[in-house]
Computed example of a mutant assay.
Amino acid sequence: MNLGLTLIGALLFLAPGLAIVLVASLDAPRFVKKPLLGSSSIAILGLVPVLSAVVHGVAMFIGAINRSLAKSHPLLHLPFDFDPYPVYLNLVAGRASGEIETAWALLCIGLITVSSASAYYLITLLFNVRNRRKYGVDARWPNETELEHLYRRATDDERRAIVATVFVKKPVTGAIGGWVGPIDQIYVDQTGAVISVTLLTPALFRLSATQTDLTIDPGAVEYEEVDWTLRYSALTIPASEIESIAYFLTEPPIGADADMTLEDLTVQALGQSSE
């Protein structure tokens, strides 16, 4: 048995499942970084061969039906066999086939892989259209996380940004407050808990009310930006320093255009928080 041919056969088998998982991952927020190996990644590794087996099974079933119908329906007869699996099984067994047969098999399995990924993407689009009609654009859809919801809405309008208001345990100003700014990256562990968050061009803020005022009258809270001498292009805050995080989406102000800077959006975020 040829080990190289066997490995090629195994990779071809996994190709459709890997393609579907790759397309599915494109919907996730790009700024959320997860560990390479975790419970979710192990589950995905187990899902890939299952998806691949389903796709290959359907393709083999269609090929078998075509061969059966071609015997009695000449219009279905092709000058070549579009079913790549006889040659594929030779690859798995370590037996080489002719160049033309092998090339055609590789092409067909490649087309099957692209078709399965495209079909998944089309189904996702149809579900999104359904959800938009049923729940609306701004509403949070079923099984959608908060960040996925904000990310979906942000991608609909480039003038919007996802902003995080990060309250820190030991505020720099000595008052209740922290940092606010557009999200660059969020690192999470296997359970989804935040490891660290990185903000772009963050602004330092504090609450104008005291902790006692917050308890008595939460509506009296107002944000105010602190005139801080240091300006960071980016700031990473570890979980050990974070008291809490709130996420929200900036709304494009009247007359806004695509040339708005991140600093504009940060200032706007502070203004929204004080409303």
Rank of each mutant, 00 (worst) to 15 (best):
L3Q: 09
A24L: 09
A28P: 00
F31R: 07
L37T: 05
L47M: 10
V50S: 13
H56P: 04
V58I: 15
V58M: 10
A64G: 12
L69K: 11
A70C: 08
K71G: 06
H73K: 10
L78N: 11
P86Q: 06
L91A: 07
L91C: 01
A93H: 07
G98R: 10
T102Q: 08
L106D: 01
S116R: 07
S116I: 05
A117Y: 04
L125P: 00
L126K: 04
R133Y: 10
R133G: 09
Y135A: 00
D138A: 10
T145W: 09
E146A: 06
E146D: 12
R160S: 10
R160D: 06
F167D: 09
F167L: 05
V168M: 03
K169F: 11
V172A: 15
G174T: 06
A175T: 08
D184H: 10
Q185G: 00
Y187H: 13
Q190F: 03
G192L: 04
S196E: 15
S196T: 09
A203S: 09
S208G: 09
Q211D: 12
L214N: 02
P218T: 07
G219L: 07
D227F: 06
R231G: 03
S233M: 06
T236L: 02
P238W: 10
A239S: 11
E241L: 07
A258W: 04
E263R: 10
